[in-house]
Design a binder for these strands. Structure first.
Lengths: 160, 160
DNA sequence: ATAATCCCCACCAATCCACTAGGAATTAAA
DNA sequence: TTTAATTCCTAGTGGATTGGTGGGGATTAT
């Protein structure tokens, strides 16, 4: 029941983008540096986000990425589902609403459990808007990071 | 974000045990047959459950397993955590409450997300008692399985 | 032109998952 | 007392997934 680095790194990247792009585009190299993620790997993640319409890109020199949506209407759930593929705890048609039901699903009791887990996860992530994380970041970094040249003081060694 | 077969099979095994053992012990071979899980694999799962005090065993011929707890006080969360190890979506000390915090965790915004997911999962599974699944099973099977010799009609091909 | 940047695809090592295999210890029943 | 049924334990294994790296092409501001 673990989120992969796709979801963890990807959400950090989107948040970084939301905080550090003011109408301008941000090159991936900057995000990679700030978030301590390799550019190559980050490319794969942001590619998914672009195809899903969460970020937009500008190619060429001085190009980069920016958020395609209003952070107030962009939920963490939308971002994580793009990156992780699905947040369902099981591959079960009754739970995911996709694919074929398996034989005997009408007498399957444990699907009740999987459905409740699924609902609770989806409700949790869909109720968190990106704007909330931005606000939280402003609160925290406002208190701490008031160094002169406004640089990143410590690399995020935490992988979560 | 998938539960492994450990959790899925294991919960089915416990439920099977709860339904099919009336003060008597049930040999693993019966559970394996009914639930369509190999005995060898099931052994590993039930071994964890026994060490955690969820089931008790009697060795030797005519031996087997039975539930060690009252289904009304045994939550699905307790069972799943034994089988899966942990239901946390990330390895993060701030979320799991174990291990060392990583550098910069005080400025880590995404942990807010992981904590909410974690809470919602744990609340969901801890609120489902095994007795609820037993009741559900009685409701369903009472309606359907009234064949003469009371055998299992179809093998549970569903892996969830 | 050149350098910066996005974009795409192929590959790879390590890890984890979902088992299988084999055998030792225990015990009821014949 | 043998036999068969059963729990218990450990090791191995093939395949899939994870978490990347690397190379190269396309695009564009300077």
């Amino acid at each position: 029941m673990k989120l992969s680095t796709k979801g963890r790194y990807g959400l950090r990247a989107v948040l970084d983008l939301a905080i550090n792009s003011k109408d301008e585009v941000v090159p991936l190299s900057e995000i990679a540096l700030r978030q301590n993620i390799s550019i190559s790997y980050l490319e794969q993640l942001i590619s998914k986000l672009r195809k899903a319409g969460i970020v937009t890109s500008i190619r060429g020199a001085q190009g980069g990425y920016k958020l395609a949506k209003d952070p107030a209407t962009l939920s963490v759930g939308e971002i994580l589902r793009v990156l992780e593929g699905s947040l369902e705890p099981v591959n079960c048609a009754e739970v995911t609403g996709e694919g074929e039901s398996c034989a005997g699903s009408d007498t399957c009791v444990t699907k009740l459990v999987w459905m409740r887990i699924s609902d609770s996860i989806n409700k949790a992530v869909d109720s968190i808007m990106l704007s909330e994380l931005i606000d939280e970041n402003n609160k925290i970094s406002g208190n701490i990071c008031n160094d002169e040249d406004n640089k990143v003081l410590e690399s995020p060694s935490c992988n979560n």
